[in-house]
Amino acid sequence: MSRHEAVSDSAEARRGFLAKLLAVCCGGLATLPPLVAGAWMILDPLRRRGAAATFLPVTDLASVPDDGIPRQFAVVTDRVDAWTGFAAEPIGAVYLRREQGSDTVEALSATCPHAGCFVEIESQGKCFRCPCHNSTFTLDGRIVAPSPSPRAMDGLECQIAKNGQIAVKWQNYYTGIAEKVARP
Protein backbone atom coordinates (compact mmCIF):
# COMPACT_ATOMS: atom_id res chain seq x y z
CA MET A 1 0.00 0.00 0.00
CA SER A 2 2.71 2.40 0.86
CA ARG A 3 4.13 2.37 -2.60
CA HIS A 4 0.77 3.36 -4.07
CA GLU A 5 0.43 6.27 -1.80
CA ALA A 6 3.63 7.66 -3.18
CA VAL A 7 2.27 7.85 -6.69
CA SER A 8 0.33 10.95 -7.61
CA ASP A 9 -3.34 10.70 -8.58
CA SER A 10 -2.88 11.73 -12.18
CA ALA A 11 -0.07 9.27 -12.72
CA GLU A 12 -2.24 6.49 -11.37
CA ALA A 13 -5.09 7.46 -13.65
CA ARG A 14 -2.72 7.47 -16.61
CA ARG A 15 -1.32 4.12 -15.64
CA GLY A 16 -4.83 2.78 -15.19
CA PHE A 17 -5.87 3.96 -18.60
CA LEU A 18 -2.77 2.50 -20.21
CA ALA A 19 -3.36 -0.81 -18.54
CA LYS A 20 -6.94 -0.91 -19.75
CA LEU A 21 -5.91 0.01 -23.26
CA LEU A 22 -3.20 -2.61 -23.30
CA ALA A 23 -5.51 -5.26 -21.88
CA VAL A 24 -8.09 -4.60 -24.56
CA CYS A 25 -5.45 -4.53 -27.29
CA CYS A 26 -3.73 -7.72 -26.20
CA GLY A 27 -6.94 -9.58 -25.72
CA GLY A 28 -8.30 -8.35 -29.01
CA LEU A 29 -5.13 -9.20 -30.85
CA ALA A 30 -5.06 -12.68 -29.40
CA THR A 31 -8.62 -13.35 -30.54
CA LEU A 32 -8.16 -11.84 -33.95
CA PRO A 33 -6.26 -14.66 -35.72
CA PRO A 34 -8.99 -17.31 -35.30
CA LEU A 35 -11.61 -14.78 -36.35
CA VAL A 36 -9.67 -13.61 -39.38
CA ALA A 37 -8.70 -17.13 -40.40
CA GLY A 38 -12.29 -18.21 -39.91
CA ALA A 39 -13.68 -15.39 -42.01
CA TRP A 40 -11.04 -16.01 -44.63
CA MET A 41 -11.96 -19.62 -45.03
CA ILE A 42 -15.67 -19.08 -44.82
CA LEU A 43 -15.47 -16.65 -47.70
CA ASP A 44 -13.69 -19.19 -49.88
CA PRO A 45 -16.77 -20.03 -51.99
CA LEU A 46 -16.82 -16.44 -53.25
CA ARG A 47 -13.76 -17.04 -55.35
CA ARG A 48 -15.00 -20.34 -56.78
CA ARG A 49 -16.31 -20.12 -60.30
CA GLY A 50 -18.48 -22.57 -62.11
CA ALA A 51 -17.10 -24.25 -65.21
CA ALA A 52 -17.00 -21.82 -68.12
CA ALA A 53 -19.98 -22.16 -70.42
CA THR A 54 -19.02 -24.50 -73.22
CA PHE A 55 -20.85 -26.33 -75.93
CA LEU A 56 -21.76 -29.78 -74.70
CA PRO A 57 -22.99 -32.52 -77.02
CA VAL A 58 -26.55 -33.41 -76.07
CA THR A 59 -28.04 -35.59 -78.77
CA ASP A 60 -28.44 -35.71 -82.53
CA LEU A 61 -30.94 -34.22 -84.90
CA ALA A 62 -32.76 -37.51 -85.47
CA SER A 63 -33.76 -37.59 -81.80
CA VAL A 64 -35.63 -34.30 -82.04
CA PRO A 65 -38.72 -34.93 -84.15
CA ASP A 66 -39.76 -31.92 -86.20
CA ASP A 67 -43.21 -31.65 -84.66
CA GLY A 68 -42.76 -28.48 -82.63
CA ILE A 69 -43.01 -30.43 -79.38
CA PRO A 70 -40.01 -29.98 -77.07
CA ARG A 71 -38.15 -33.05 -75.90
CA GLN A 72 -36.15 -33.20 -72.70
CA PHE A 73 -32.48 -34.19 -72.76
CA ALA A 74 -29.95 -34.52 -70.00
CA VAL A 75 -26.83 -32.40 -70.22
CA VAL A 76 -23.87 -34.57 -69.41
CA THR A 77 -20.35 -33.43 -68.70
CA ASP A 78 -17.44 -33.95 -66.35
CA ARG A 79 -18.06 -32.12 -63.14
CA VAL A 80 -16.04 -31.26 -60.09
CA ASP A 81 -17.73 -30.93 -56.72
CA ALA A 82 -15.12 -29.66 -54.26
CA TRP A 83 -12.83 -32.70 -53.93
CA THR A 84 -14.82 -35.14 -56.06
CA GLY A 85 -14.44 -35.38 -59.81
CA PHE A 86 -17.38 -36.88 -61.64
CA ALA A 87 -16.87 -38.23 -65.13
CA ALA A 88 -19.78 -37.81 -67.55
CA GLU A 89 -22.35 -36.81 -65.00
CA PRO A 90 -25.80 -35.39 -65.79
CA ILE A 91 -25.73 -31.83 -64.50
CA GLY A 92 -29.03 -30.50 -65.76
CA ALA A 93 -31.53 -30.74 -68.54
CA VAL A 94 -32.56 -28.88 -71.66
CA TYR A 95 -35.61 -28.94 -73.86
CA LEU A 96 -34.93 -29.17 -77.57
CA ARG A 97 -37.57 -28.33 -80.10
CA ARG A 98 -37.74 -28.40 -83.85
CA GLU A 99 -40.41 -26.79 -85.99
CA GLN A 100 -41.96 -28.77 -88.80
CA GLY A 101 -39.55 -29.20 -91.68
CA SER A 102 -36.89 -27.13 -89.96
CA ASP A 103 -33.25 -28.05 -89.67
CA THR A 104 -32.59 -25.76 -86.74
CA VAL A 105 -33.21 -26.58 -83.13
CA GLU A 106 -34.17 -24.29 -80.27
CA ALA A 107 -32.81 -25.10 -76.84
CA LEU A 108 -34.36 -24.01 -73.56
CA SER A 109 -32.92 -24.56 -70.14
CA ALA A 110 -35.21 -26.65 -67.93
CA THR A 111 -34.36 -24.48 -64.93
CA CYS A 112 -37.25 -22.20 -64.03
CA PRO A 113 -36.26 -18.50 -64.23
CA HIS A 114 -38.52 -17.85 -61.24
CA ALA A 115 -36.66 -19.68 -58.50
CA GLY A 116 -34.94 -22.62 -60.08
CA CYS A 117 -37.35 -25.55 -60.02
CA PHE A 118 -37.41 -28.02 -62.89
CA VAL A 119 -39.91 -26.90 -65.52
CA GLU A 120 -41.97 -29.68 -67.03
CA ILE A 121 -44.19 -30.09 -70.04
CA GLU A 122 -47.77 -29.91 -68.84
CA SER A 123 -49.72 -33.15 -68.98
CA GLN A 124 -51.68 -32.10 -72.08
CA GLY A 125 -48.44 -31.27 -73.87
CA LYS A 126 -49.66 -27.77 -74.76
CA CYS A 127 -47.29 -25.70 -72.65
CA PHE A 128 -44.50 -25.75 -70.10
CA ARG A 129 -45.48 -25.49 -66.48
CA CYS A 130 -43.30 -25.16 -63.44
CA PRO A 131 -44.52 -27.48 -60.68
CA CYS A 132 -43.48 -25.01 -57.97
CA HIS A 133 -45.36 -21.74 -58.34
CA ASN A 134 -47.22 -22.49 -61.56
CA SER A 135 -45.23 -20.30 -63.94
CA THR A 136 -46.50 -21.21 -67.36
CA PHE A 137 -44.65 -20.85 -70.65
CA THR A 138 -45.53 -21.50 -74.26
CA LEU A 139 -43.79 -24.38 -75.99
CA ASP A 140 -41.26 -21.90 -77.39
CA GLY A 141 -40.57 -20.63 -73.88
CA ARG A 142 -42.50 -17.36 -73.78
CA ILE A 143 -44.35 -16.31 -70.64
CA VAL A 144 -48.05 -17.04 -70.41
CA ALA A 145 -49.46 -14.19 -68.33
CA PRO A 146 -50.09 -13.84 -65.48
CA SER A 147 -46.99 -15.63 -64.32
CA PRO A 148 -44.86 -15.43 -61.18
CA SER A 149 -41.80 -15.77 -63.38
CA PRO A 150 -40.24 -12.41 -64.24
CA ARG A 151 -38.98 -13.55 -67.62
CA ALA A 152 -39.32 -16.15 -70.34
CA MET A 153 -37.53 -19.47 -70.13
CA ASP A 154 -33.83 -19.14 -70.75
CA GLY A 155 -32.84 -19.98 -74.28
CA LEU A 156 -29.46 -21.60 -74.78
CA GLU A 157 -27.18 -21.35 -77.77
CA CYS A 158 -27.28 -24.38 -79.94
CA GLN A 159 -24.99 -25.78 -82.63
CA ILE A 160 -25.69 -28.56 -85.07
CA ALA A 161 -22.68 -30.28 -86.54
CA LYS A 162 -22.59 -31.72 -90.06
CA ASN A 163 -23.12 -35.20 -88.70
CA GLY A 164 -26.29 -34.06 -86.95
CA GLN A 165 -24.79 -33.82 -83.50
CA ILE A 166 -26.51 -31.14 -81.40
CA ALA A 167 -24.40 -29.25 -78.89
CA VAL A 168 -25.85 -26.81 -76.38
CA LYS A 169 -23.98 -24.04 -74.61
CA TRP A 170 -24.81 -24.91 -71.02
CA GLN A 171 -25.17 -21.96 -68.73
CA ASN A 172 -26.85 -21.13 -65.43
CA TYR A 173 -28.63 -17.81 -65.04
CA TYR A 174 -29.65 -15.82 -62.01
CA THR A 175 -33.26 -16.47 -61.17
CA GLY A 176 -35.96 -14.05 -60.09
CA ILE A 177 -34.83 -11.05 -62.09
CA ALA A 178 -36.21 -9.68 -65.32
CA GLU A 179 -32.92 -9.74 -67.22
CA LYS A 180 -31.17 -12.90 -68.21
CA VAL A 181 -27.81 -12.61 -66.42
CA ALA A 182 -25.35 -15.49 -66.60
CA ARG A 183 -23.91 -16.78 -63.35
CA PRO A 184 -20.14 -16.61 -63.22
Binding site: P90, C132, H133, P146, P148, G176, A178
Partner: peptide, 29 residues
Protein backbone atom coordinates in the same frame (compact mmCIF):
# COMPACT_ATOMS: atom_id res chain seq x y z
CA UNK B 1 -30.10 -32.34 -60.18
CA UNK B 2 -30.91 -33.90 -63.55
CA UNK B 3 -34.11 -35.56 -62.38
CA UNK B 4 -37.20 -33.35 -62.32
CA UNK B 5 -39.00 -33.32 -59.03
CA UNK B 6 -42.50 -32.07 -59.61
CA UNK B 7 -43.57 -32.73 -56.03
CA UNK B 8 -41.15 -30.07 -54.75
CA UNK B 9 -42.69 -28.41 -51.72
CA UNK B 10 -41.21 -26.86 -48.60
CA UNK B 11 -42.12 -28.21 -45.17
CA UNK B 12 -45.72 -27.33 -44.29
CA UNK B 13 -44.82 -24.44 -42.01
CA UNK B 14 -43.08 -22.69 -44.91
CA UNK B 15 -45.87 -23.45 -47.31
CA UNK B 16 -47.42 -20.02 -46.77
CA UNK B 17 -44.25 -18.32 -48.03
CA UNK B 18 -44.22 -20.65 -50.99
CA UNK B 19 -47.85 -19.81 -51.74
CA UNK B 20 -47.23 -16.14 -51.13
CA UNK B 21 -44.95 -16.04 -54.17
CA UNK B 22 -47.88 -17.09 -56.34
CA UNK B 23 -49.84 -14.05 -55.15
CA UNK B 24 -47.49 -11.85 -57.14
CA UNK B 25 -48.36 -13.43 -60.44
CA UNK B 26 -47.76 -11.04 -63.28
CA UNK B 27 -45.74 -8.57 -61.22
CA UNK B 28 -42.51 -9.50 -62.92
CA UNK B 29 -39.27 -9.37 -61.00
Amino acid sequence: PSQPYAAARPEWYFLFLFQFLKVFEGWGA
